[in-house]
């Protein structure tokens, strides 16, 4: 058996499968991307029930990456909207990473007892301090770590580890008190596997992610494997405790895609000329 892999931005991968790329399985960044494939009938509507934990074999969380020694003293979300802080995060409309950062900020306000208006005021402050809206996660990483733009970079924990290792000690991770849980879902592309007769292999491939060996590989790459007692990550680090909330805390995917990131939604309103005045 041979496995062919294609890696690219989640949204464009989803569109590729929709447009006819004969993938057997998809592992995408956000639920809406799999759901978009499911809407075409390529993936069965009940895909979320096909694997454990709603077909999410591992998690991550949105964390802060800061300059060495944390010179701006950034500890938690409220610190991001204070004084002369400059933030790097990709455009939530074009990036899954960016969507989660937005939702993490929003949810952190709600979880702290704030109202939706408070949350909106907070994310507006946040994006006013964001000088660059890269279209993807890796571009944002380059902007922060290589070009030296910004005081804090919002990103997934696994990405943050890679970024810190790459920086050779010039960056460090800060865990906010609470953050959103990142749930990248997986699914078998039913229409493709049934036609090619590869369902068995495809399901085994995804099921492997839930086995002890699979969990060890996942952990090595700084994703938090699902289930109790996760194995330590590559450098032996245990997983710092962080209070997490999931997508339902901010309204669920369908609602956030429309009200936050849809055309004319909350995110767009931040940039309306009126909002800037």
């Amino acid at each position: 058996m041979s496995i062919k892999q294609s890696h690219a931005a989640s949204g464009s991968q989803a569109r590729a499968v929709i447009d006819g790329l004969e993938a057997d399985v998809v592992t995408l960044a956000v639920w809406p991307d799999v759901e978009a494939v499911a809407k075409t009938g390529l993936v069965r509507a009940d895909w979320q029930k096909r694997f454990e934990n709603d077909s999410v074999p591992y998690h991550s969380v949105v964390v802060f990456v800061v300059r060495k020694g944390n010179p701006k003293g950034i500890k938690d979300w409220p610190d991001l909207a204070k004084g002369e802080i400059s933030i790097v995060t990709p455009n939530p409309k074009t990036s899954g990473n960016g969507k989660y950062s937005f939702l993490a900020a929003w949810g952190a306000v709600l979880a702290g007892g704030g109202s939706a208006d408070d949350a909106k005021a907070f994310v507006t402050e946040l994006y006013k301090r964001t000088p660059v809206l890269d279209t993807g996660a890796r571009a944002a990483t380059a902007t922060f770590s290589q070009k030296g733009i910004g005081d804090v970079h919002l990103t997934f924990e696994n990405e943050a580890h890679l970024e810190v290792v790459e920086s050779k000690g010039s960056l460090e991770i800060v865990y906010p008190r609470r953050s959103i849980r990142v749930d990248p879902p997986v699914a078998v592309v039913d229409a493709n596997v049934d036609r090619k007769g590869t369902r068995h292999v495809a399901e085994a491939y995804l099921g492997f992610l839930y086995t002890p060996e699979g969990r060890a590989i996942v952990a090595k790459h700084h994703y938090r494997p699902w289930g109790s007692a996760p194995p330590p990550s590559a450098d032996g680090a245990t997983w710092p405790a962080i209070e997490t909330f999931d997508i339902t805390a901010v309204g669920g995917w369908e609602a956030v895609m429309k009200t936050f990131f849809g055309e004319g939604g909350v995110f767009d309103s931040i940039y309306l000329p009126e909002a800037g005045r």
Binding site: R15, P32, A36, T94, T135, M257, E263
Partner: peptide, 12 residues
């Protein structure tokens, strides 16, 4: 073109 990509992300 960035707007175009934004809309594509929404599958619009």
């Amino acid at each position: 073109p960035v707007l175009i990509v934004s809309r594509l992300e929404e599958f619009a």
